[in-house]
Design a protein around this nucleic acid. Structure first.
Lengths: 162, 162
DNA sequence: CCTATTATGTCAACAAAGCTGACATATATT
DNA sequence: AATATATGTCAGCTTTGTTGACATAATAGG
């Protein structure tokens, strides 16, 4: 009567759920720290970083593609994207099939800047991977993927397996 | 010459590092979605949620304790904390040892509200844990902990093992 | 005991990044 | 030819972060 849950479900107790919630919070808090420091010396912020990242990752993505990944309004995106285009970090070119679309690509300048931001996060994650080992990393991916909205999982899978 | 890295380091390639970065982004994006929906029907926002969470988790925490966990300025905290106290979600009482301190605790009302927010995230994480299984969950914790700033890890450990 | 430090609070101004609503234009689609 | 879609833009507002300056009460150190 002492133990209410079967051995195999111990990881589903409140304590373990809180652990995941808190680790997610603290890890994300520190994960954004390094790029934020670089950004603080620029005219840009975290919102610009996200745009640079996804345009770099998906060259020729469209405005609506970005809107869906970022989950912000076009007015919000428009502000940061406009600044990035204005300052020569991103180029826009009309779509070939659908000429209403604006295909987005990083310029050389944009690529260089994005790379410097990415590098800090890559290093942090690489260190964490090394310390935790490959099996832990596989579990890390698996849980995160399942935290994503169910209906979005296929889109996320497509992105990460690209 | 084809394969540049030893088998055991395949998980440290750029592709796998990007995978972690992107999963962290997408998971966090959706993780905040459920409480945000509830908050949208209240007078509070995500900042209030964080305060409610940590006060609930650490009853009698101090203002400076919160400031350290949240990494915001006292002026920012003061605004949201003030609203939560004003509206009867949090009580303040003077410290017993150090009477300069204000010990923070949730009121019944605060506890009830925090619980409703927490429940949504608990459910999401519980589902993800179930789908991924206990070994994956252990890896998830391990990697996240190592993403946290090294000098903060002991504080985070103390929090999650509380 | 006196002085310095600490914990907290407060006022004011500002910045980043999100939001809604309304309306415009060019191109596709039916 | 009419409708729908992709994108852009103007205007105003909200939330949540920032800096800087200053105030008060209580603790701590010499």
């Amino acid at each position: 009567m002492q133990r209410k849950l079967p051995q195999s479900n111990l990881y589903l107790r409140e304590e373990e759920l809180r652990r995941g919630i808190e680790l997610l919070y603290f890890a994300y808090r520190d994960f954004t720290r390094d790029p934020d420091e670089i950004l603080a010396t620029s005219n840009f912020g975290r919102a610009h970083h996200r745009v640079l990242y996804f345009v770099g990752r998906n060259p020729e993505t469209t405005v609506s593609g970005l809107l869906h990944q970022l989950r912000i309004t076009k007015q919000s995106l428009s502000r940061v994207l406009g600044q990035l285009v204005e300052d020569g970090y991103i180029d826009q070119k009309p779509g070939t099939e659908d000429r209403r679309q604006r295909l987005l690509v990083l310029t050389d300048k944009g690529e260089k800047f994005e790379k410097s931001l990415f590098e800090t996060q890559r290093n942090r994650v690489a260190e964490a991977y090394k310390k935790a080992g490959p099996e832990a990393v596989a579990g890390f991916w698996e849980v995160l993927l399942n935290i994503v909205d169910e209906q979005e999982r296929s889109a996320v899978l497509q992105q990460i397996e690209k």
